[in-house]
């Protein structure tokens, strides 16, 4: 039995927690300082991209190593 689904689920869990924390922090900041929304959105998007990349790397490496 392959453990790939479980492994991917764990990776997705970590990624989701990370993305949620970024979103939470950004919303806190935006609510406290609405005039800085533009800057915060930009930085938030960059951070989201970096967190997402880790999950994508896991996906590729995991799928490739389980295939063979």
């Amino acid at each position: 039995m392959s453990m790939l689904p479980l492994a991917l689920g764990l990776a997705a869990l970590g990624c989701a927690i990370g993305l949620g924390m970024i979103g939470m922090a950004a919303m806190n900041g935006m609510a406290r300082q609405p005039e800085a929304i533009g800057k915060m959105q930009t930085v938030m998007l960059i951070a989201l991209a970096f967190v997402e990349l880790v999950f994508l790397l896991t996906l590729f490496l995991g799928a490739n190593s389980f295939k063979g």
């Binding site: 997402e52 990349l53 994508l56 790397l57 590729f60």
Partner: peptide, 13 residues
């Protein structure tokens, strides 16, 4: 690698 893999992963995913 990170630029290209991010785009590829999101669209192909």
């Amino acid at each position: 690698l990170s630029l290209s893999l991010r785009l590829f992963g999101n669209i192909d995913g």
